[in-house]
Computed example of a mutant assay.
Amino acid sequence: MKTIKASMFFASALFATSASAAPQILPKGSLACVSEEAFEKQFSYIAQGVNKIVSDCVITNQDIEVVIIDFNMIDATEVSVVSNGATLYIVGSDLQ
């Protein structure tokens, strides 16, 4: 029963985020990478306790308005920055 409830929660969260037409905010202090490969490498570092930002990743120094391109609860979420169209890969749960 817990599995069914969890699945329903994630499905509804995914639908609600995907159906939203309004831009989202990636808050200051969030991880953002310019490629999915860099995002995966960064999480390998984190998983092994290495406190270092890999090349092609940054910690944001301001709130960034983004549009969700591909929301993913497990892997990188792909977003497009509203101000310049740049593609970033982020932790989807960071969005506000």
Rank of each mutant, 00 (worst) to 15 (best):
A19Y: 13
F9D: 13
L14F: 15
D75S: 07
V66Q: 02
A47H: 12
I90F: 06
I90K: 00
L26Y: 00
Q62E: 15
I69G: 05
L31S: 06
A32V: 07
N72L: 09
V79G: 03
T60I: 05
S55M: 12
V58F: 03
I53E: 07
S55G: 07
C33M: 02
S20F: 11
A16E: 15
I4S: 15
G85I: 06
F71G: 04
M1C: 00
N72P: 10
E65Q: 15
F43A: 10
I25M: 14
F39N: 01
A38Q: 05
V34T: 14
D70F: 03
L14M: 12
Q42F: 07
V66C: 02
S35D: 11
A16L: 15
I90T: 10
Q24V: 05
T77V: 05
S83K: 12
K52Y: 09
V79Q: 02
F15K: 08
I69L: 04
C57T: 06
T17M: 10
I64V: 11
I68D: 00
A22C: 08
I69M: 03
V34E: 11
S12P: 01
A86S: 13
P27A: 10
F39A: 01
K2M: 14
Q42S: 04
A21D: 09
E36Y: 05
Q62D: 13
D75C: 04
F39G: 01
F15Y: 11
K52D: 10
L14E: 12
K52S: 09
S7T: 14
S55T: 12
S30L: 07
T87F: 05
S35I: 05
D63K: 04
L14N: 12
L88I: 02
E40W: 07
V66T: 08
S7I: 10
E40F: 11
S83P: 03
Q62P: 01
A86K: 15
T3P: 11
E36P: 02
G85A: 11
D94H: 14
V54Y: 01
V54D: 12
S18I: 04
A22M: 13
T77G: 02
A86I: 01
F43C: 03
Q42P: 08
G85L: 06
M8P: 10
F43S: 09
Q62S: 14
V82D: 07
G29C: 11
A19H: 10
I59G: 04
A6C: 00
G92K: 03
S20G: 11
A21T: 14
Y89Q: 00
A47I: 10
